[in-house]
Design a protein around this nucleic acid. Structure first.
Length: 294
DNA sequence: GCCCAGGTGAAGC
DNA sequence: GCTTCACATGGG
Protein backbone atom coordinates (compact mmCIF):
# COMPACT_ATOMS: atom_id res chain seq x y z
CA UNK A 1 0.00 0.00 0.00
CA UNK A 2 1.37 3.37 -1.00
CA UNK A 3 0.18 6.76 -2.15
CA UNK A 4 2.91 7.31 -4.73
CA UNK A 5 4.14 5.20 -7.61
CA UNK A 6 6.39 5.96 -10.56
CA UNK A 7 5.85 4.29 -13.92
CA UNK A 8 8.47 4.13 -16.63
CA UNK A 9 7.08 5.35 -19.95
CA UNK A 10 8.29 5.95 -23.47
CA UNK A 11 6.71 8.37 -25.92
CA UNK A 12 4.10 9.57 -23.48
CA UNK A 13 2.96 13.18 -23.78
CA UNK A 14 0.80 13.49 -20.70
CA UNK A 15 -0.10 17.15 -21.19
CA UNK A 16 -1.32 16.62 -24.75
CA UNK A 17 -3.13 13.44 -23.75
CA UNK A 18 -5.05 15.07 -20.92
CA UNK A 19 -5.92 18.29 -22.76
CA UNK A 20 -6.69 17.08 -26.28
CA UNK A 21 -10.45 16.95 -25.81
CA UNK A 22 -11.01 13.29 -24.96
CA UNK A 23 -11.37 13.84 -21.18
CA UNK A 24 -12.69 16.96 -19.48
CA UNK A 25 -11.82 16.72 -15.79
CA UNK A 26 -8.04 17.29 -15.65
CA UNK A 27 -6.57 20.48 -14.20
CA UNK A 28 -3.03 21.80 -14.10
CA UNK A 29 -2.35 22.55 -10.42
CA UNK A 30 0.84 22.79 -8.36
CA UNK A 31 3.00 21.56 -11.25
CA UNK A 32 0.81 18.44 -11.55
CA UNK A 33 -2.14 17.17 -13.51
CA UNK A 34 -4.92 16.77 -10.97
CA UNK A 35 -7.95 14.64 -11.70
CA UNK A 36 -10.34 11.89 -10.73
CA UNK A 37 -10.29 8.36 -12.11
CA UNK A 38 -13.27 6.39 -10.84
CA UNK A 39 -13.10 6.69 -7.06
CA UNK A 40 -9.45 7.74 -7.02
CA UNK A 41 -8.38 11.34 -6.58
CA UNK A 42 -4.97 11.49 -8.25
CA UNK A 43 -2.16 13.81 -9.25
CA UNK A 44 0.17 13.00 -12.13
CA UNK A 45 3.64 14.40 -12.64
CA UNK A 46 5.35 14.09 -15.97
CA UNK A 47 9.09 13.48 -16.35
CA UNK A 48 11.07 12.75 -19.53
CA UNK A 49 10.73 8.97 -19.23
CA UNK A 50 8.31 8.44 -16.39
CA UNK A 51 4.98 9.40 -14.89
CA UNK A 52 4.61 9.66 -11.13
CA UNK A 53 1.17 9.25 -9.61
CA UNK A 54 0.14 10.45 -6.18
CA UNK A 55 -3.20 9.44 -4.70
CA UNK A 56 -5.17 10.82 -1.78
CA UNK A 57 -5.42 7.39 -0.16
CA UNK A 58 -3.04 4.41 -0.15
CA UNK A 59 -3.38 2.10 -3.12
CA UNK A 60 -2.74 -1.65 -3.18
CA UNK A 61 -3.35 -2.23 -6.87
CA UNK A 62 -2.62 0.36 -9.55
CA UNK A 63 -4.31 -1.40 -12.44
CA UNK A 64 -7.05 1.23 -12.61
CA UNK A 65 -4.37 3.81 -13.44
CA UNK A 66 -2.30 1.80 -15.89
CA UNK A 67 -5.50 0.82 -17.68
CA UNK A 68 -6.79 4.40 -17.82
CA UNK A 69 -3.48 5.75 -19.10
CA UNK A 70 -2.91 2.69 -21.34
CA UNK A 71 0.66 2.52 -20.12
CA UNK A 72 1.29 -0.88 -21.68
CA UNK A 73 0.52 0.30 -25.20
CA UNK A 74 3.40 0.52 -27.67
CA UNK A 75 2.74 3.84 -29.40
CA UNK A 76 5.31 3.25 -32.12
CA UNK A 77 3.19 0.39 -33.45
CA UNK A 78 0.19 2.71 -33.62
CA UNK A 79 2.10 5.41 -35.45
CA UNK A 80 3.56 2.85 -37.85
CA UNK A 81 0.00 1.90 -38.80
CA UNK A 82 -0.78 5.48 -39.90
CA UNK A 83 -0.77 6.28 -43.61
CA UNK A 84 2.54 7.67 -44.79
CA UNK A 85 1.27 10.98 -46.10
CA UNK A 86 2.15 14.60 -45.45
CA UNK A 87 -0.82 15.57 -43.23
CA UNK A 88 -0.28 12.59 -40.92
CA UNK A 89 3.46 13.18 -40.71
CA UNK A 90 2.82 16.80 -39.73
CA UNK A 91 0.17 15.86 -37.18
CA UNK A 92 2.37 13.23 -35.54
CA UNK A 93 5.33 15.61 -35.45
CA UNK A 94 3.18 18.32 -33.85
CA UNK A 95 1.93 16.21 -30.93
CA UNK A 96 4.36 13.39 -30.43
CA UNK A 97 3.41 11.12 -27.55
CA UNK A 98 -0.31 11.86 -27.68
CA UNK A 99 -2.25 8.86 -26.37
CA UNK A 100 -5.83 7.68 -26.20
CA UNK A 101 -7.10 7.05 -22.68
CA UNK A 102 -9.42 4.22 -21.69
CA UNK A 103 -12.23 5.96 -19.86
CA UNK A 104 -15.25 4.78 -17.95
CA UNK A 105 -18.10 4.26 -20.46
CA UNK A 106 -20.76 6.10 -18.46
CA UNK A 107 -18.61 9.14 -17.74
CA UNK A 108 -17.48 9.27 -21.35
CA UNK A 109 -21.02 8.86 -22.69
CA UNK A 110 -22.51 11.50 -20.42
CA UNK A 111 -19.64 13.90 -21.14
CA UNK A 112 -20.05 13.68 -24.89
CA UNK A 113 -23.84 14.00 -24.71
CA UNK A 114 -23.03 17.34 -23.09
CA UNK A 115 -20.44 18.23 -25.71
CA UNK A 116 -22.62 19.04 -28.71
CA UNK A 117 -22.02 22.53 -30.12
CA UNK A 118 -20.01 23.50 -27.07
CA UNK A 119 -16.41 24.60 -26.89
CA UNK A 120 -14.15 22.34 -24.85
CA UNK A 121 -13.72 25.04 -22.19
CA UNK A 122 -17.47 25.14 -21.69
CA UNK A 123 -17.86 21.38 -21.68
CA UNK A 124 -15.34 21.31 -18.84
CA UNK A 125 -17.31 23.91 -16.90
CA UNK A 126 -20.61 22.07 -17.31
CA UNK A 127 -19.09 18.78 -16.20
CA UNK A 128 -17.37 20.41 -13.23
CA UNK A 129 -20.70 21.82 -12.06
CA UNK A 130 -22.41 18.48 -12.62
CA UNK A 131 -19.83 16.66 -10.49
CA UNK A 132 -19.89 19.27 -7.71
CA UNK A 133 -23.66 19.12 -7.44
CA UNK A 134 -24.35 15.43 -7.98
CA UNK A 135 -21.09 13.54 -7.46
CA UNK A 136 -20.10 11.96 -4.16
CA UNK A 137 -17.24 13.79 -2.40
CA UNK A 138 -13.95 11.91 -2.52
CA UNK A 139 -11.16 11.69 0.01
CA UNK A 140 -8.44 14.21 -0.81
CA UNK A 141 -4.94 14.72 0.56
CA UNK A 142 -4.23 17.64 2.93
CA UNK A 143 -4.12 20.87 0.98
CA UNK A 144 -5.96 19.49 -2.04
CA UNK A 145 -9.23 21.12 -3.07
CA UNK A 146 -12.49 19.16 -2.82
CA UNK A 147 -12.98 16.46 -5.44
CA UNK A 148 -16.03 14.55 -6.58
CA UNK A 149 -16.90 11.32 -8.30
CA UNK A 150 -18.58 11.55 -11.63
CA UNK A 151 -22.29 11.21 -10.73
CA UNK A 152 -23.85 7.80 -11.36
CA UNK A 153 -26.73 7.26 -13.81
CA UNK A 154 -29.00 6.59 -10.81
CA UNK A 155 -28.11 9.88 -9.18
CA UNK A 156 -28.79 11.87 -12.33
CA UNK A 157 -31.94 9.86 -13.04
CA UNK A 158 -33.33 11.20 -9.75
CA UNK A 159 -32.75 14.80 -10.81
CA UNK A 160 -35.22 16.91 -12.75
CA UNK A 161 -34.56 18.53 -16.09
CA UNK A 162 -34.86 21.94 -14.43
CA UNK A 163 -32.22 21.04 -11.87
CA UNK A 164 -29.84 19.76 -14.53
CA UNK A 165 -30.29 22.93 -16.55
CA UNK A 166 -28.86 24.84 -13.62
CA UNK A 167 -25.52 23.27 -14.58
CA UNK A 168 -25.83 25.39 -17.75
CA UNK A 169 -26.17 22.42 -20.06
CA UNK A 170 -29.12 24.00 -21.91
CA UNK A 171 -30.98 21.82 -24.39
CA UNK A 172 -28.73 18.88 -23.60
CA UNK A 173 -30.42 18.40 -20.22
CA UNK A 174 -33.34 16.26 -21.46
CA UNK A 175 -30.92 14.06 -23.42
CA UNK A 176 -28.66 13.44 -20.45
CA UNK A 177 -31.61 12.84 -18.16
CA UNK A 178 -33.35 10.39 -20.50
CA UNK A 179 -30.13 8.46 -21.10
CA UNK A 180 -29.35 8.34 -17.38
CA UNK A 181 -32.83 6.96 -16.69
CA UNK A 182 -32.66 4.24 -19.32
CA UNK A 183 -29.34 3.07 -17.90
CA UNK A 184 -30.37 3.41 -14.25
CA UNK A 185 -33.52 1.38 -14.97
CA UNK A 186 -31.41 -1.46 -16.33
CA UNK A 187 -32.98 -1.17 -19.78
CA UNK A 188 -29.60 -0.49 -21.31
CA UNK A 189 -26.41 -2.35 -20.41
CA UNK A 190 -23.25 -0.35 -21.10
CA UNK A 191 -21.00 -3.25 -20.06
CA UNK A 192 -22.46 -5.54 -22.72
CA UNK A 193 -21.26 -3.25 -25.51
CA UNK A 194 -17.69 -4.31 -24.85
CA UNK A 195 -18.58 -7.82 -26.03
CA UNK A 196 -20.07 -6.65 -29.35
CA UNK A 197 -18.43 -5.89 -32.69
CA UNK A 198 -17.91 -2.17 -33.15
CA UNK A 199 -20.75 -1.73 -35.64
CA UNK A 200 -23.27 -3.43 -33.36
CA UNK A 201 -22.07 -1.46 -30.36
CA UNK A 202 -22.51 1.76 -32.34
CA UNK A 203 -26.08 0.83 -33.29
CA UNK A 204 -26.86 0.23 -29.63
CA UNK A 205 -25.33 3.50 -28.46
CA UNK A 206 -27.22 5.47 -31.09
CA UNK A 207 -30.50 4.24 -29.62
CA UNK A 208 -29.82 6.47 -26.62
CA UNK A 209 -31.32 9.98 -26.55
CA UNK A 210 -28.78 12.61 -27.53
CA UNK A 211 -26.40 10.07 -29.04
CA UNK A 212 -25.80 10.33 -32.77
CA UNK A 213 -22.97 9.02 -34.89
CA UNK A 214 -20.36 11.44 -33.57
CA UNK A 215 -21.02 10.98 -29.86
CA UNK A 216 -21.28 7.23 -30.35
CA UNK A 217 -17.90 7.16 -32.09
CA UNK A 218 -16.31 9.15 -29.27
CA UNK A 219 -17.55 6.65 -26.71
CA UNK A 220 -16.53 3.67 -28.83
CA UNK A 221 -13.03 5.11 -29.17
CA UNK A 222 -12.36 6.75 -25.81
CA UNK A 223 -14.14 4.30 -23.50
CA UNK A 224 -14.30 0.94 -25.27
CA UNK A 225 -11.07 1.17 -27.22
CA UNK A 226 -12.54 0.43 -30.65
CA UNK A 227 -9.69 1.92 -32.64
CA UNK A 228 -11.58 1.92 -35.91
CA UNK A 229 -14.11 4.41 -34.53
CA UNK A 230 -13.49 7.77 -36.21
CA UNK A 231 -15.44 10.67 -34.71
CA UNK A 232 -16.06 13.42 -37.26
CA UNK A 233 -16.84 16.78 -35.71
CA UNK A 234 -16.59 20.24 -37.27
CA UNK A 235 -12.81 20.30 -36.81
CA UNK A 236 -12.09 16.88 -38.25
CA UNK A 237 -14.47 17.69 -41.08
CA UNK A 238 -12.51 20.87 -41.84
CA UNK A 239 -9.19 19.08 -41.59
CA UNK A 240 -10.15 16.22 -43.86
CA UNK A 241 -11.68 18.56 -46.41
CA UNK A 242 -8.65 20.78 -46.58
CA UNK A 243 -5.93 18.17 -46.25
CA UNK A 244 -7.39 15.39 -48.35
CA UNK A 245 -10.23 16.79 -50.48
CA UNK A 246 -8.81 20.02 -51.93
CA UNK A 247 -11.26 22.09 -49.86
CA UNK A 248 -14.22 20.66 -51.71
CA UNK A 249 -17.53 20.10 -50.02
CA UNK A 250 -17.69 16.49 -48.89
CA UNK A 251 -20.59 14.60 -47.40
CA UNK A 252 -20.18 13.11 -43.96
CA UNK A 253 -20.91 9.65 -45.30
CA UNK A 254 -18.04 9.95 -47.76
CA UNK A 255 -15.66 11.10 -45.01
CA UNK A 256 -16.51 8.03 -42.98
CA UNK A 257 -15.88 5.78 -45.97
CA UNK A 258 -12.59 7.58 -46.60
CA UNK A 259 -11.56 7.26 -42.95
CA UNK A 260 -12.32 3.56 -42.91
CA UNK A 261 -10.09 2.87 -45.90
CA UNK A 262 -7.37 5.51 -45.68
CA UNK A 263 -6.28 5.60 -42.04
CA UNK A 264 -5.88 1.90 -41.36
CA UNK A 265 -6.60 -0.15 -38.24
CA UNK A 266 -5.73 2.72 -35.88
CA UNK A 267 -7.96 5.25 -37.64
CA UNK A 268 -9.36 6.52 -34.36
CA UNK A 269 -5.88 7.29 -33.12
CA UNK A 270 -5.09 9.09 -36.37
CA UNK A 271 -8.26 11.12 -35.93
CA UNK A 272 -7.13 12.31 -32.50
CA UNK A 273 -3.77 13.41 -33.87
CA UNK A 274 -5.48 15.38 -36.64
CA UNK A 275 -7.96 16.89 -34.19
CA UNK A 276 -5.29 18.02 -31.75
CA UNK A 277 -3.01 19.20 -34.54
CA UNK A 278 -5.56 21.54 -36.08
CA UNK A 279 -6.87 22.82 -32.74
CA UNK A 280 -3.59 23.77 -31.11
CA UNK A 281 -2.35 26.34 -33.56
CA UNK A 282 0.27 24.17 -35.19
CA UNK A 283 -1.37 23.76 -38.53
CA UNK A 284 -2.44 26.10 -41.31
CA UNK A 285 -6.01 25.36 -40.16
CA UNK A 286 -5.55 26.68 -36.66
CA UNK A 287 -8.53 28.57 -35.26
CA UNK A 288 -8.24 32.36 -35.05
CA UNK A 289 -6.75 33.32 -31.72
CA UNK A 290 -5.16 29.96 -31.10
CA UNK A 291 -1.53 30.11 -30.02
CA UNK A 292 0.55 29.72 -33.14
CA UNK A 293 3.99 28.21 -32.95
CA UNK A 294 6.62 29.88 -35.09
C1' DG B 1 -24.76 42.82 -32.21
C1' DC B 2 -22.53 38.79 -34.88
C1' DC B 3 -20.64 33.96 -35.51
C1' DC B 4 -19.23 29.73 -33.70
C1' DA B 5 -18.63 25.72 -30.61
C1' DG B 6 -15.83 17.77 -30.45
C1' DG B 7 -24.38 17.58 -32.69
C1' DT B 8 -28.90 15.67 -32.41
C1' DG B 9 -33.63 15.06 -33.59
C1' DA B 10 -37.55 16.47 -35.92
C1' DA B 11 -39.79 18.70 -39.55
C1' DG B 12 -39.89 19.91 -44.21
C1' DC B 13 -39.15 18.78 -49.00
C1' DG C 1 -33.81 9.66 -49.02
C1' DC C 2 -31.83 14.50 -48.21
C1' DT C 3 -31.66 19.45 -46.28
C1' DT C 4 -32.98 22.78 -42.85
C1' DC C 5 -33.91 24.26 -38.47
C1' DA C 6 -34.35 24.78 -33.27
C1' DC C 7 -32.18 23.91 -29.35
C1' DA C 8 -29.02 27.01 -24.53
C1' DT C 9 -24.99 29.18 -23.36
C1' DG C 10 -20.79 31.65 -23.48
C1' DG C 11 -16.33 33.11 -25.82
C1' DG C 12 -14.12 35.86 -29.22
Amino acid sequence: METTRTFAVRDYNLAATLTCGQAFRWHWRDQCWAGVIGTHCVRLREAPSSITAETAEPVANWNWLTHYLQLHLDLSEVVRAFPDDEPMRAAVAACRGLRLLRQDPWECLASFILSSTKQIVQIRQIIARLCERYGEPLAVAPGWPPAFRFPSPARLADASETELRRCKMGFRAPYLLATARVIADGQFDLARLQTLPVEAARVELMKLPGVGRKVADCVLLFAYGFQSAFPVDVWVMKALRQLYFLRRRVHLQRLHRFAATHFGPCAGYAQQYLFHYIRTGRSPLAPPGAPRRR
